[in-house]
Design a protein around this nucleic acid. Structure first.
Lengths: 236, 236
DNA sequence: TGATCTTTTGTACGATAGTACAAATCACAT
DNA sequence: ATGTGATTTGTACTATCGTACAAAAGATCA
């Protein structure tokens, strides 16, 4: 641990370490954890494979450090935006503001990390799909509080909707968010080029608009399972 | 369907082959493609590793066969349900029926395959997140037609909403659907045990309800980007 | 400059991956 | 019962994996 050479602080030569982190983040986010080897990461970062071991000890340690790097800032920013959103007077506007406070940090950069918001969120999506244990643990203990706060804020704006429904719908929101980052090309393809799935601004607006409407849907009454069965049932 | 005892045709002893397919499907769907070895699959199926090579040649070939097995029946059932849904008179009911026609086959079994609908859909979700090439190809050429038909049906029910918006919202639907199958425990956790994320019936009803509302959201007008910026903007 | 600490390099090791292939076994028509 | 083709087994090969570790290189300050 170096403290003060002459003036600055932290460290003055973070080149390799940062390069490895960035390369790993990119590769993990696009190919998954197991499909990427330590050698792949080192090569992409212009480093030696042994350098990865030196800085992060293990491959899991590297992943853990990526999470540590992003979780704090993203969580903080989400909390700030949520607090600001809760101060919005108009109930309809407040709902939209809360949703936006949840979505925005996932697409944009946390703080000084260059445009890594979307990349890290995509990484989370992929790790979640792969059932990665390292990711599962750190995510649950980092984001569950924020998720509850978000759900509570939504519930305050929509008191007539049961909390259970809000949980489901916020879960759908996260799924939609993840999927938009994982396969943006599908949007471009299905819209026959009319929409650009990788345009973050469009994705955010579309997602906020759709999600606000979803939250405002009437409560799903447990007693009356479904108004009517509109189509044929399964043939089994 | 078995026809002739004396005639050979395909094969009359599908035990091992089917066991391997089922085991691979389960393991791939929960752990991803690269995290599962051929030996893992063979062990789970009670087979010899060499048996996998014999039946499917390569690991990719095994994945391909899983897709071939499910895509046809699921697509067919989705088409049937969609056709039935389009005949619903009432516009509001028809929208819900169409959404249900899209969601139902993803959760329930395709035809004679035992309860494998949700398992295969989860597999698709995981492969999509991992950017698996084999899966990407076969999915695009199998489901894109059905997806377009679905989008058209929604558009017919909501003529005032631009097609682009419908594409985005149907994309969100698929993402929400995928995510519900990938991490159902998160719903249970965030609802503090009040909801069961792995209950397919609840998931379907919640998803249909929320999605119908999302589709019915007002069109996102391109000219006026957002009614108002409700919260503070990014601090960058 | 030389001493000391940090970082990078190169190489190697054991484990495990996907796959190939010959031998053993099985199912069944004759 | 026996021969024949389909299947299963066992084993082995090569490639690559994550990781360890000693030596080289670079940086820092007396």
């Amino acid at each position: 641990m170096v403290r003060k050479p002459t003036s600055k602080e932290t460290v003055r030569k973070p080149n390799m370490r940062e390069a490895i982190l960035a390369a790993a983040e990119e590769l993990f986010a696009t190919n998954g954890f197991n499909a990427v080897s330590v050698r792949d990461i080192a090569h992409a970062a212009g480093a030696n494979p042994g350098s990865v071991t030196y800085h992060f000890k293990t491959k899991d340690g590297l992943l853990l450090e990526i999470y540590r790097r992003h979780c704090g800032p993203m969580n903080l920013r989400r909390s700030e935006l949520l607090a600001a959103a809760r101060r919005v007077r108009d109930l309809q506007d407040r709902l939209e503001a809360v949703v936006r406070a949840y979505v925005l940090p996932a697409f944009t950069s946390g703080s000084d990390l260059a445009g890594g918001g979307a990349r890290f969120t995509r990484l989370r999506a992929v790790m979640s799909a792969e059932g990665n244990e390292v990711a599962r643990k750190i995510i649950a203990q980092t984001f569950d509080d924020t998720s509850h706060a978000f759900i509570d804020a939504i519930h305050d704006s929509l008191p007539h909707v049961p909390r259970t429904d809000i949980v489901w719908r916020s879960h759908f929101l996260l799924g939609a968010l993840y999927y938009s980052l994982v396969t943006p090309d599908r949007v471009s393809r299905l819209s026959r080029g009319e929409a650009d799935g990788s345009d973050a601004a469009s994705a955010i607006e579309q997602l906020v608009q759709a999600t606000v409407a979803a939250f405002q849907a009437p409560a799903l009454d447990q007693a009356a399972p479904a108004r009517r069965r509109p189509v044929v049932s399964s043939k089994t």
